[in-house]
Computed example of a mutant assay.
Amino acid sequence: MDNKILLVEDDIDISNNIKTFLSLNGFKVVQAFSAGDTFDIFDEKEISLIILDLMLPDMFGSEILKVLRARGIKIPILVLSALSEEHNKVSLLELGADDYLTKPFGMKELLARIKSLIRRKDGFGLVAEKGPFRVDREKSQIHFHGNLMNLTATEYKLLLFLFENSGRTFSREKLIDKVWGEEYFVEARMVDVYIRRLREKIEADPSNPQILKTRRGFGYVLEI
């Protein structure tokens, strides 16, 4: 597991305990003990998730949360706090927190929350965003640059598969197997037809695709 977590917690003992536990479970943990540390580290390192304590010596965690979201940073943020009242949780979620864990908490629960947030970040939740796409699996909808796409059932399945595997190249045969299934007889050229249809809906110039590309001799890849 290559996910790197930024742990923002001013209590050194708590921070070290969390770091040790998460390290044993395959995560890389970078520690910050103040708001200043947080912004310095964040500028330098590629972070997959932030664990953010609310009570810091130089700035409230809620203010850090607002700053990060104001910068357009979409990394999942899990807030830790001793404040358990519902209105505190609601206000933090409205500020942009992705989840909230009340102290004291169990390490196994912390791990479960982290894994859930990373799955959602990587596109395995019901709703996922990546590049210009927003996928809602529950509604079987895909938005492109904020606009709902008008897709047939097959176009949806094909685009969803490519979205979930963005950056990977698939041959026509592999796409037939993964999207249509072995029980259907689909000619390879039909894949080209559906690829062309999708390009007409997402490419500024379908004849010169910049998102749904062809790797000659290998297949198709969605680059986002």
Rank of each mutant, 00 (worst) to 15 (best):
E155S: 07
E85D: 15
L160C: 04
P132E: 03
K108L: 14
D40Q: 14
T20Y: 12
D13K: 12
L93Q: 01
R120E: 14
P76H: 02
I224F: 07
N16M: 09
A112S: 14
L151C: 11
H143L: 15
E138D: 10
K4H: 07
F21D: 04
R71P: 03
F144E: 03
A204E: 15
P209I: 11
G217P: 11
L52W: 02
I14G: 06
E63N: 14
A153P: 01
M107A: 10
D53A: 08
Y220H: 12
M59A: 13
I77R: 00
G72L: 04
K178V: 09
D177V: 09
L22W: 03
Y184I: 11
G26A: 10
L22Q: 05
I195Q: 00
F133R: 00
D98M: 00
S48G: 11
D11T: 14
R197N: 10
F185A: 11
F21C: 05
D122F: 12
W180N: 03
M107W: 08
L56N: 01
E203Y: 09
V179D: 00
K4N: 09
H87Y: 04
V30Y: 05
D98Y: 02
K201D: 12
L162V: 08
M1V: 12
N165G: 10
D40G: 06
E94S: 08
A35G: 15
G167E: 00
I47T: 13
L198H: 06
E200F: 06
G36T: 14
I176M: 07
Y156Q: 01
I114N: 01
L49P: 06
L95A: 12
S81D: 06
T38Q: 00
V29W: 04
K108C: 03
E63W: 04
L111K: 10
R113Q: 10
T152I: 04
L92V: 08
R113I: 07
R199H: 07
T169F: 01
A97H: 01
K4R: 15
I51T: 07
P132V: 07
R199E: 09
E183N: 14
M55I: 14
E164L: 12
I77Q: 00
E9R: 07
